[in-house]
């Protein structure tokens, strides 16, 4: 909300998509999900991607996060070009450089909260940085819940574990796919608060897909997508400004 603080940040780019296209099918049945999208995500910036259903917002995130393949263009995470990577290298990149928070809580029910948090590092066979881990856990307020299983945690607590998991391995960038979609408004606000804090206090880069103007208002910047193209961008958004912007889309959508 405070645009002033942005100026203090470095302007290095954490991830960048250039002329990114994603086309499903061929000929008559061809569907263009992304149409030559170019976008950069600055380090230590919290970006929200918005747009109506079918606008390509999730596809954009999946492609940039190395979860999905794209038809043309380029995606870079730091210095790494994703287009040329094989599945194995892509997996390693996701493991080491990217954090994920999904809508459905996506924790492993057999692991304790702590084990879920350190899972990406376990997969990599790395020892977690103890101090950093403590910082993250303290931040999301899970210190007394670490040995609980996901089934013993509330929805909000589960998503906080997911946030801690994403933060714990110090990825270059965190992607959230509707991270508050399944939460009540209070739990949602908590989770979004942690995400914003991680950007402010820990210098984390976060990209989040959402359809909720209130959630988007936590971001530094909101990017609007429609029909696979970036149509607008708002810096320092408020829930009202975002809602306003969305209403215009709807109106345009109805008239066109």
């Amino acid at each position: 909300m405070t645009t002033a603080s942005l100026a203090d940040r470095t302007t290095a780019v954490a991830a960048r998509a250039t002329e990114l296209s994603k086309i499903y099918g061929q000929g008559e049945t061809q569907v263009v999900a992304l149409d030559r999208v170019s976008i950069a995500f600055q380090q230590a910036e919290f970006t929200a991607i918005m747009g109506p259903s079918g606008s390509g917002k999730s596809t954009l995130m999946h492609c940039v996060a190395g979860l999905d393949t794209f038809s043309s263009g380029s995606v870079r995470i730091g210095e790494t070009e994703l287009g040329s990577l094989k599945d194995k290298q892509l997996t390693r990149l996701r493991r080491d450089k990217i954090g994920f928070i999904f809508q459905a809580f996506n924790l492993l029910p057999t692991l304790s909260a702590l084990e879920n948090i350190t899972l990406p590092m376990d997969i990599a066979g790395r020892k977690p940085d103890k101090e950093w881990l403590d910082t993250v856990i303290r931040m999301v307020g899970l210190s007394d819940r670490l040995s609980h299983r996901p089934s013993q945690l509330s929805g909000g607590q589960q998503q906080r574990v997911a946030v801690a998991r994403a933060l714990a391995s110090r990825p270059d960038i965190i992607f959230g796919d509707e991270p508050t979609g399944n939460l009540d408004s209070r739990s949602g606000a908590e989770v979004l608060g942690f995400l914003r804090n991680s950007v402010r206090e820990l210098g984390q880069t976060v990209v989040m897909v959402t359809h909720d103007p209130v959630a988007a208002a936590y971001a530094d910047r909101v990017v609007f997508l429609a029909d696979g193209r970036i149509v607008d961008e708002v810096h320092g958004p408020t829930a009202d400004s975002v809602l306003d912007r969305m209403k215009r889309f709807d109106a345009k959508g109805r008239t066109s």
Binding site: L67, D87, K88, T91, R92, R94, R95, D96, G99, F100, F102, N106, L108, L119, P120, I123, A124, R165
Partner: peptide
């Protein structure tokens, strides 16, 4: 989810 957060096919 495991694949997404970095467990490879192997």
């Amino acid at each position: 989810m495991l694949r997404a957060i970095g467990l490879d096919r192997k």
